[in-house]
């Protein structure tokens, strides 16, 4: 959603239980369970953390802040999930946050020792937002298992910055901070690879796309909405109409203020 700073902070407060200041750049941290996501979160934020639950859910919500190059950042640790196709509460929360909270940067943490499975989540995130950084964690473990990952060519394949880290050893974190800053400030503009579906799916998408193009004023990828429609994903449609209502209210406010002038 494209929202004013005040609207954004209200939305974050009410729907995601996170307090964000207007000057803070926002980061979402996504990843599978057990990939060292919380190690990275702790390393970035140190002791500046808040923990609690997501509003109305029994799922942990952790967020924290840090400064880098005199810029204040707010980082939200999303629940660890294998996918965003929303079969569990955790996935629903992660998906809604990425779709509707509009974070400035999304960092997807991948386990270098099981790249293929972790890419599943990364590719799904790519469909939602372009401002993604891939953090290839557990490089030390991968090395122990004799796995060699060609990072520059992965970067080319994915179209987003890839930072190799071994967070438990504190390796690569400085580069991660730097890349986050560059993407957040627009210095670096990733062009994430989009999933190529099989012809059946693609032709069905073509059929649906014209119908969904106008739904969100392009603040959310029409392709993603069409995919969820094909998926028959009820929970997403609920969230979508829910957040559309908010958008609508903001739109009305804006129209009214224009009339008043």
């Amino acid at each position: 959603m494209i929202l004013s700073a005040e609207k954004k902070s209200l939305l974050w407060q009410n729907y995601f239980g996170v307090t964000i200041r207007n000057d803070q750049l926002s980061i979402a941290l996504a990843g599978n369970p057990n990939v060292g996501k919380s190690t990275i979160f702790n390393a970035l934020t140190g002791l500046h953390q808040h923990t609690g639950n997501w509003p109305g859910k029994t799922v942990n919500n952790a967020h924290g802040s840090y400064q880098y190059q005199k810029k204040p950042f707010l980082i939200v640790d999303l629940p660890g999930t294998y996918s965003l196709l929303a079969h569990t509460v955790e996935e629903q929360i992660a998906r809604d946050f990425l779709c509707f909270a509009n974070p400035d940067v999304t960092v997807v943490v991948l386990d270098a020792t099981s790249l293929e499975r972790n890419l599943n989540l990364a590719l799904q995130v790519f469909e939602i937002t372009p401002n993604v950084i891939v953090c290839l964690n557990l490089m030390d473990e991968a090395k122990k298992k004799n796995l060699v990952i060609d990072v520059p060519s992965l970067e080319r394949e994915l179209g987003v910055p890839v930072v190799a880290t071994a967070a438990r050893q504190g390796k690569g974190l400085e580069e991660l901070r730097e890349k986050i800053l560059q993407v957040a400030t627009g210095l670096l503009q990733p062009t994430p690879r989009q999933i190529k579906y099989s012809s059946d799916v693609e032709s069905a998408l073509k059929e649906l796309l014209p119908l969904v193009e106008n739904i969100t004023n392009n603040s959310l990828s029409p392709r993603w909405i069409a995919l969820r429609l094909l998926d028959g994903d009820q929970s997403f449609l609920e969230s979508l109409s829910n957040f559309l209502d908010i958008d609508q209210v903001s739109f009305q406010d804006w129209e009214e203020s224009k009339c008043a002038q």
Partner: peptide
């Protein structure tokens, strides 16, 4: 159901 999706999501 959920189990099917879980297993699919794990690849």
């Amino acid at each position: 159901g959920l189990l099917r999706r879980r297993i699919l999501d794990l690849g």
